[in-house]
Design a protein around this nucleic acid. Structure first.
Lengths: 163, 163
DNA sequence: CTAAATATCTACCGGAATAGTAGATTTATC
DNA sequence: GATAAATCTACTATTCCGGTAGATATTTAG
């Protein structure tokens, strides 16, 4: 599960990404559009400003605005900035690498090997998706009978029934 | 991050999967081989028995043993049984579906769309990996100069540097 | 110059989840 | 019948998540 905080962050980025150049939104306005509690959102927007996604202007008529190209902000980068390290095992994170306390030999650890593969393809995907993808409006032809993601999920693989 | 509990569960399954037909291990023995605290492991093994992965024999000379073919137990199934629903959003889980409280329209929700894609390919991968893959011994040619998973990760994509 | 509107800083807090521990009980074997 | 094993139920300490609150700094409108 992604955290509520991340949800708010993404919704805020979507709201801010939809603005014209030069426009800005106050925390209050972002709160309305994202559904986040204002005082909680303060922390989140501040964090994203420090992460370099957003700029802020203080004082009257101030607000937040996107300062990086939406197509250059990857989903992976956002998730990392908000939730911290995303590797399935500490020994697979480069930014926050940590030896697993019990692990005797990383080179032969089966868990590391298998989760390394999983993580690698996961990373590849979330690094290739960007805020620009999140900004794409659910397009006009969205309701055609052609295979949308979730029905495809049900049909293609019966034993995925769990999730 | 996968939980410590899941780590113990996987290590236990690896230990039990390496046994010959007819053999069993006591909790104590599994604890030694997996590194898990014995009293904690009790819960975990019990859960996996109830999940249908393991069988147990009580009384003197009892123990736990694998009752399903390792090649038929997917990584995804294990993760789900131990940690519960694994979907990134409640509205993407079928077993534990829940409408996101704030979401007005699932069909046009950008978060749902994007994370649906991510989740779908993640599922595909972890459902195709099995306990049998975890049991493969780190093979004899493991230390060749050919691209292992982690160095590949560094080279192929510079801006994955974060994790 | 002053008031108001804004972002920013620091601290705290309740509930849930994680990672265990502990005691008592049942079941099978020697 | 003693012993060794799984099983059941309950409790606990710590950390993380999702906030709330108060005070401060900065800018603009009047």
């Amino acid at each position: 599960m992604i955290t509520q905080k991340t949800k708010y962050a993404l919704k805020s980025l979507i709201a801010l990404g939809a603005l014209q150049k030069g426009e800005a939104l106050t925390i209050e306005e972002v709160a309305q559009r994202s559904g986040a509690p204002k005082r909680f959102l303060e922390h989140i927007l501040l964090e994203m400003r420090r992460a370099g996604f957003l700029g802020a202007k203080r004082g009257r008529s101030g607000g937040y605005f996107l300062i990086r190209d939406a197509a250059r902000i990857s989903l992976g980068e956002i998730l990392q900035q908000i939730d911290g390290p995303i590797a399935p095992l500490p020994c697979l994170s480069r930014r926050a690498y940590q030896k697993c306390d019990d692990c005797t030999d990383e080179e032969t650890c089966q868990l590391r090997r298998v989760f390394g593969d999983v993580f690698w393809s996961y990373l590849l995907l979330i690094e290739s998706l960007t805020l620009a993808d999140l900004l794409k409006t659910p397009d006009l032809v969205a309701h055609l009978p052609s295979p949308p993601a979730d029905t495809a999920a049900q049909d293609a693989s019966p034993n995925l029934a769990g999730e």
